[in-house]
Design a protein around this nucleic acid. Structure first.
Lengths: 120, 120
DNA sequence: ATAAACCTTAAAGTATACTCTAAGGTCAAG
DNA sequence: CTTGACCTTAGAGTATACTTTAAGGTTTAT
C-alpha cells in the first residue's frame, strides 16, 4: 500500500504521515526500490490509534511512549508492566474527569428543562 | 483575591491567566482602582475546569464555547439545550475511546502476565 | 525614601504539530 | 515521449498556546 491509500483509509494526510514517521510516532515502513514507502495493513490501525489518542489530549511525545510500550519488545516485562499500569491509571483519571464534565452539562440541561417546565 | 493568589490556588501561572482573559476563555475580573485584577472565588473553579478540559483534548476555542454555554444566558434555551446535548455526545465518544484504549492496555498487561506464568 | 514584592500592558519569542513550497524522480496511459 | 498522477527530500511557513522581555506603576516594610 502506498502513502496516499493509507492517507485515504485513515483520514490523515500523506504529509502528516511522513511527519509522524520523522518524529518517530509511526514506525518506518519498508521502501520499494524506487524509494516509495510501502505500508502493511497494520499501519492503518496504528494511525487510527494515534488520531484517537491525540483527540484525547495525548501529545505526540506521550503517544510515542505508549506505542513503544504496546508494540516494542525492548523493555523488561516488569518495567513494561509498571509503565502500562501507570498509563492505565492516567486513562482512568481522564475518564473520571470526562464523567464529571458530563455531569456538569447534564445539570445545566436539567436546569434548562426545569426552567422550561416552570414556564408552561 | 489578586492574580498571584489565584495562580497558586490553581497551579496556572499569572501570565497564563492574563492570556486566558485576553483570548476570552476566562471572564474579565473587576479591577480595583489601582488597576489590579480582583478575582472572586468562582474563578478558582473555572480555571480548574479549563485546565481539566485542556488535559482532555479540548482546544481553548472549544473551552470558550463550552463555558459560554455553561455560564452565559445569552442564547435561547432551545439552542443552548441543542448545543449542550451535542457537547454531551462528544464527551460520550471520548469516554468510549478512552475505554477502548484501556482495554488495549489491559490486553497488553494480560499478555505480559500470561508470558510470566508460562515461565514459572 | 528606597528597596522588595507586587501589579500593569504590549510585543517579541518559543514549542508543538502540522502544512506548504520547491525541486526533482517514477510510472502508466495515449 | 510527454502528460498527469504519483512519489521523494529539505526547508520554510502557520496556528495554537503559551512564555519571556521591556518598561513602567503600586504597595508595604524599614
Amino acid at each position: 500500500m502506498q502513502i496516499q491509500e493509507l492517507s485515504q483509509l485513515t483520514g490523515i494526510s500523506s504529509t502528516t504521515i511522513r511527519y509522524y514517521e520523522k518524529v518517530g510516532v509511526l514506525p518506518r515502513p519498508q521502501k520499494s526500490k524506487n524509494g516509495y514507502r510501502t505500508y502493511p495493513k497494520s499501519h492503518i490501525l496504528q494511525l487510527k490509534m494515534i488520531a484517537q489518542a491525540k483527540a484525547l489530549g495525548f501529545t505526540l511525545k506521550e503517544i510515542k511512549e505508549l506505542s513503544s510500550l504496546l508494540f516494542s519488545k525492548k523493555l523488561s516485562r516488569q518495567e513494561m508492566a509498571r509503565r502500562l499500569d501507570k498509563k492505565n491509571r492516567e486513562i482512568d483519571l481522564k475518564i473520571k474527569a470526562l464523567k464529571k464534565m458530563k455531569t456538569e452539562i447534564d445539570n445545566a440541561l436539567a436546569g434548562l428543562c426545569e426552567f422550561k417546565e416552570r414556564l408552561t
